[in-house]
């Protein structure tokens, strides 16, 4: 089997660095502390009420999954945002571009490396997450769906990081831009929906007071579909379906007003995971295009048109 050279090198270098060990200790340490506090509070509750609240174990699952998700959102951009710009800063990118390795392999090697780190983190957190299996309530399929959600979120955040890293020369700027884009995706799409809903609510209220009768309900309109790209919204939808009320529609309607009845809103989790996966693929493809030197691009893109335009201008001037 032919290994991706970049992936292999990243594994070699990563295995020598203390960074991975530190990340694992911090990540699992936080998860363990949350889990222990949850178990402790359940036990304390038993002492007072003499009954075990099994729903609290589902809370443990929610807590651990949420912390895992938040940490993935923070760690993945940090891993990818400096990957290509770091090569550029070390001046090794040019050296790699003179080899027969395709830029696609280079970018994918970086992505594999980051996803492997994420996989190690997710697998290392399984024992803590599996505490919930002691009392039941969560199936293996639920854990699988959560893993899928985490995987796609990792691909999306990794894609954003790789794209910024390929476009920007400095790792610091690239990291900042990656987090800004991520904040825009998570908080920005939410804020836009809330704002649109409030605006529409004002309009509907004035309309109602004017005519005293209406059938229209306020909503955030088409902005709702922006939430398909929001990883936090997707995660909430997954967790709500597994350990929450399970009625995503009522929660969304409470926050953003009326939700239209269509295929997307009925299959929100699937649609949002698909949308995020598509966005991740687009971003990774854009990163590959940005890294690709001129000579590997299709012929029509190679020849700059500036001189041709200058010649044309001269001719027309004559």
């Amino acid at each position: 089997m032919k290994w991706n050279p970049v992936f292999r090198r990243e594994l070699t270098v990563g295995s020598r660095s203390i960074r991975m060990a530190v990340i694992l200790v911090v990540f699992n340490g936080i998860l363990a502390v949350v889990a222990l506090f949850n178990l402790y509070s359940v036990m304390e509750q038993v002492k007072i009420t003499a009954e075990i609240q099994y729903s609290r174990f589902l809370d443990l699952y929610t807590f651990v999954s949420a912390i895992e998700f938040i940490m993935l959102m923070f760690i993945m951009p940090a891993l990818t945002a400096s990957s290509i710009s770091g090569e550029r800063e070390r001046q090794t990118l040019e050296l790699m571009l003179t080899t027969t390795m395709e830029p696609r392999e280079m970018v994918m090697g970086k992505l594999y490396s980051s996803l492997t780190t994420m996989l190690i983190l997710a697998v290392s957190a399984l024992p803590i997450q599996s505490l919930v299996f002691v009392y039941g309530g969560i199936t293996v399929a639920d854990i699988g769906l959560l893993f899928l959600c985490h995987g796609i979120v990792a691909a999306l955040t990794g894609g954003i990081g790789l794209f910024c890293s390929s476009c920007l020369k400095r790792s610091t700027i690239s990291t900042v831009c990656t987090y800004v884009i991520l904040v825009l995706l998570v908080a920005g799409t939410y804020a836009v929906n809330v704002f649109a809903y409030r605006m529409d609510l004002n309009e509907v209220n004035s309309y109602v007071s004017a005519l005293a009768s209406t059938v229209r309900r306020a909503s955030s309109g088409g902005f709702l579909y922006l939430l398909l790209l929001n990883p936090a919204a997707t995660f909430y939808a997954v967790i709500n379906g597994q350990a929450g009320s399970g009625d995503l529609r009522s929660v969304f309607e409470q926050w953003f007003g009326a939700m239209p009845d269509n295929w997307v809103t009925e299959h929100w989790i699937f649609a949002s995971l698909a949308a995020q996966l598509i966005l991740a693929v687009i971003l990774i493809a854009a990163a590959v295009c940005t890294v690709t030197p001129w000579r590997m691009r299709p012929h029509r893109e190679r020849r700059p048109v500036r001189r041709a335009k200058e010649k044309y201008k001269l001719k027309t001037a004559d």
């Binding site: 050279p5 090198r9 070699t12 270098v13 070390r90 090794t92 050296l95 790699m96 027969t100 390795m101």
Partner: peptide
């Protein structure tokens, strides 16, 4: 090039083998 372009935490043989695998 007029710069070295080397990786930290990589041995000389690994550096060479990495570029060999790139070809």
């Amino acid at each position: 090039p007029d710069f070295f372009g080397v990786y930290d935490n990589l041995k000389v043989s690994e550096y060479m083998e990495f570029f060999a695998s790139c070809y």
